[in-house]
């Protein structure tokens, strides 16, 4: 626990003392802002729903860039060796890093709080829906961070890790719109794998245990794969 917290702290420190986190924040907020603005300008609705789908897709591209350095860089600079020779379990390292990127996501999402403030100032948003939307988005971030970490653990080349993360996560998006390839019936099955159908209920104000299970299991699955990769890098 202490170790997880130490790693979380260290990662956050590294994020926020380098311009990296701020650039990410800026890029993300700009993208989200474009979607938010287009959403309200085109529909005139006091809701984040239009924005959320697009933001989740952009997170799919942004977050692997954020997590790519986690293991790739540590492998390269040798700090990974130090971590692994400390009396700290790989799981603690993993969870610490995952929590760190998730915390940064939280900061990014907090930044979009301005959008909610705008909605509340000019209109009357449904607060229940706003709350579940953010919950859904945070769960999505959890999946993307875990996927990004997994990609990062596979290589010690940061760029490859970032690209790999995007390639890894992309299917979660693409399988949701494969009906023209596989037909309606299979699409209904693939929708279980796809991310957006699970996010959709959150954006409507619904919390469904199956959706939560989807995000939680996917996150766990990626973290588990990362763990196995870290282990295997030692014996391969």
């Amino acid at each position: 626990m202490t170790a997880t917290f130490a790693i979380l702290k260290r990662e956050l420190l590294t994020y926020f003392v380098s311009p990296l986190a701020y650039v990410f924040l800026g890029v993300f907020l700009f993208l989200a802002g474009v979607f938010f603005y287009l959403g309200i300008a085109l529909t005139g609705e006091a809701s984040l729903r239009v924005m959320l789908g697009n933001v989740s897709i952009s997170l799919m591209f942004v977050l692997p860039m954020l997590t790519m350095r986690h293991f790739a860089e540590e492998q390269k600079t040798g700090t990974f060796e130090m971590l692994m020779t400390s009396p700290v379990s790989p799981v603690a390292i993993l969870v610490g890093k995952w929590l760190a990127s998730l915390t940064l996501c939280l900061v990014m999402l907090l930044g979009t709080g301005l959008f909610v403030a705008i909605l509340a100032y000019y209109g009357d948003p449904d607060w229940g829906v706003v709350a579940t939307s953010y919950l859904g988005l945070l769960l999505t971030c959890g999946v993307f961070c875990a996927g990004g970490l997994f990609a990062s653990s596979l290589t010690d080349d940061q760029v490859a890790a970032g690209m790999g993360g995007i390639v890894l996560l992309m299917p979660l998006w693409l399988v949701g719109s494969a009906s023209s390839l596989v037909g309606e019936e299979w699409q209904a099955r693939l929708d279980h794998l796809a991310l957006l159908p699970h996010l959709r209920s959150f954006t409507k104000g619904v919390i469904d245990t199956a959706d939560i299970a989807y995000f939680a299991l996917l996150t766990f699955g990626f973290l588990f794969l990362t763990f196995r990769t870290l282990e295997s890098r030692r014996w391969r």
Binding site: D126, G128, T132, H192, S201, K204, G205, D208
Partner: peptide, 24 residues
């Protein structure tokens, strides 16, 4: 196993509508 757990979760759903109009 993760896939199986999801299958179970999918068949035993519980859900709450938090929208203030109970739209859903």
């Amino acid at each position: 196993l993760l896939g199986v757990v999801y299958g179970v979760a999918d068949r035993n759903r519980a859900r709450w509508d938090l929208s203030s109009d109970s739209t859903n």
